[in-house]
């Protein structure tokens, strides 16, 4: 474990807690894409298949349970909670996320480190995570005004993967044979997808104006 990865995990944790807090306290999911939340639940479900078979550390197991629990409860809140679901804008959240799932699954079947079920599922979760934010970014473009909790959520989500890239660089230089191109490239693509959002987020923060994304 290194400081970059720990900071990345804490940032990731903060992003899901910010979202849960927003939905649980103000009972609203305005501006939140259910599609992105469902994709994230699928990412964690396919990545943590080894949850009960490989014990790595208490930290690792605990964090996996938190990410699984929070992502599925966020989906539950938006889908079934009688108050929250009313604020879900399904007419705007129209990204066909199945168009993301299938290509990622095909790519995972073609490009992976080992052609086993677990490894293909794990690789699928990496590719899917890289693009899972797209429905949310599209929704933000459409609804234009971003309440600051949603803005913080997307920012933290992007920042965690950027910190992971520093972690991979650190591990590459400190651990022999630590080379994982699939992880690195999908992590880089993921971070680049946030790049324009980061730009507008910092602009609004610097000029102290409400975050607006260009249409």
């Amino acid at each position: 474990m290194n400081i970059f990865r720990f900071a990345g995990d804490m940032t990731h944790l903060a992003s899901v807690l910010v979202l849960l807090l927003k939905i649980h306290t103000i009972k609203s999911c305005a501006g939140i894409s259910l599609k992105t939340q469902e994709l994230y639940a699928l990412v964690f479900a396919t990545r943590y298949l080894d949850l009960f078979t490989d014990y790595i550390s208490l930290y690792n197991t605990l964090m996996k349970l938190i990410f699984l629990g929070s992502s599925f409860s966020i989906v539950w809140y938006i889908r079934y909670h009688k108050i929250v679901r009313r604020s879900y804008d399904k007419d705007q959240d129209t990204f066909r996320h199945y168009f993301l799932v299938l290509p990622c699954l095909l790519l995972a079947l073609l490009i992976n480190e080992k052609f086993t079920f677990r490894e293909v599922m794990w690789t699928f979760s990496l590719y899917l995570e890289a693009v899972a934010i797209l429905p949310q970014l599209v929704l933000l473009q459409r609804t234009r005004n971003i309440d600051n909790l949603t803005g913080q959520y997307v920012f933290l989500l992007g920042a965690y993967r950027a910190l992971y890239i520093l972690n991979w660089i650190y591990r590459y230089f400190t651990e022999p044979h630590y080379v994982h191109w699939i992880t690195w490239i999908s992590g880089l693509v993921q971070t680049l997808l946030y790049a324009d959002f980061f730009y507008y987020y910092f602009q609004s923060w610097k000029n102290n104006v409400k975050l607006e994304l260009p249409a």
């Binding site: 990731h12 080894d50 550390s57 690792n60 990410f67 994982h180």
Partner: peptide, 10 residues
């Protein structure tokens, strides 16, 4: 060992 190293990240 290799797979163990890969999968120690979240």
């Amino acid at each position: 060992y290799q797979t163990r190293a890969t999968k120690d990240e979240l």
